[in-house]
Computed example of a mutant assay.
Amino acid sequence: MNDPVPALGSIIRNSRGSNCSWNDSKWLPHFLRHEVERGIAYRLQERAWGGLPIDLCRELDGRATISVPGQKPEKTGPRLRLKPGNRLVRRWRGTTYSVLVTEGGFLFESRSYSSLSTIATEITGTRWSGPRFFGLTERAA
């Protein structure tokens, strides 16, 4: 199999027309050009040899951070992965509540629900994020 990355320059030139060169600073600022090149090179490699395994992609997504200039980076946190049979337990105002994760959603007090937030709202009497109520996500600092 041929290495697709060395052909990157000609692919970009051909896609932009014969009158433009990849080094034309009017098309893209210099510091972004390298990021675009890296992104295109990755996609070419991904098409030729396949991408990362899905479980590794999920792990990387869970470790990602959101960065805003002048602010502390915000961790996106791992994605919620509940499996059928998991039990979520929460003590609220002296009463312990238990929710069973099922194939189609959640089972709480012998009733099926599609949303943890609906269950949390029913327990508290006020609107809550279900994942936050059951301790599945961290509270923002």
Results as ranks from 00 to 15, higher is better:
T76D: 08
S98L: 13
T65V: 03
T124P: 03
S112T: 14
I123Y: 02
K83H: 12
V68T: 11
T124Q: 10
W128G: 00
T126M: 02
S110H: 06
I123R: 06
L80G: 08
T95R: 04
G125V: 00
T124Y: 06
L88W: 02
G70V: 07
S114I: 15
W128F: 03
L60F: 00
K75E: 08
G130W: 03
P69D: 14
R90W: 00
P78S: 14
P73W: 04
P84C: 14
K75G: 09
G77M: 01
T121R: 08
T121A: 08
R93L: 12
R79S: 07
G94C: 06
A64G: 01
S115F: 04
R63S: 09
S112V: 01
R90H: 09
K72T: 04
K75A: 07
S98F: 06
L100W: 00
S114K: 11
K75F: 04
S115A: 11
V99P: 06
I123C: 04
T76Y: 05
S129A: 09
R58Y: 04
Q71T: 05
A120W: 08
S114V: 14
V89L: 15
T65I: 13
Q71P: 02
P69E: 15
R127M: 04
T76I: 08
P73T: 04
G125E: 00
R87D: 02
L107A: 15
W128M: 02
R81K: 05
A120N: 05
L107C: 14
E109K: 10
P84S: 13
R58H: 12
R87A: 07
I119H: 09
S114M: 04
R79L: 11
N86R: 00
V89P: 12
S98W: 09
T65D: 09
V89G: 07
E109G: 08
R87E: 01
L80N: 08
S117H: 10
S112H: 12
T121D: 11
R81N: 07
S110F: 13
A64F: 00
G70F: 02
E109W: 06
I66W: 00
G130R: 06
S110P: 09
G104W: 07
P69M: 13
W92M: 12
A120D: 09
G62P: 11
N86M: 13
R91D: 02
G94N: 05
E122N: 01
G77Q: 01
A64V: 01
E103F: 04
E122A: 02
R127A: 11
R58T: 12
G105W: 11
S117W: 08
L82E: 05
E103M: 06
R63C: 13
S98P: 03
V101L: 15
P78Q: 10
P73C: 07
E59V: 14
Q71Y: 09
V99E: 03
F108R: 05
I119F: 09
R127T: 08
R87I: 10
Y97V: 04
R90M: 06
T102S: 11
P84W: 13
T124H: 05
Q71E: 01
G104F: 10
L82G: 01
G94I: 13
D61M: 15
E103W: 07
K72C: 03
T124A: 11
S98Q: 13
L88D: 04
W92I: 12
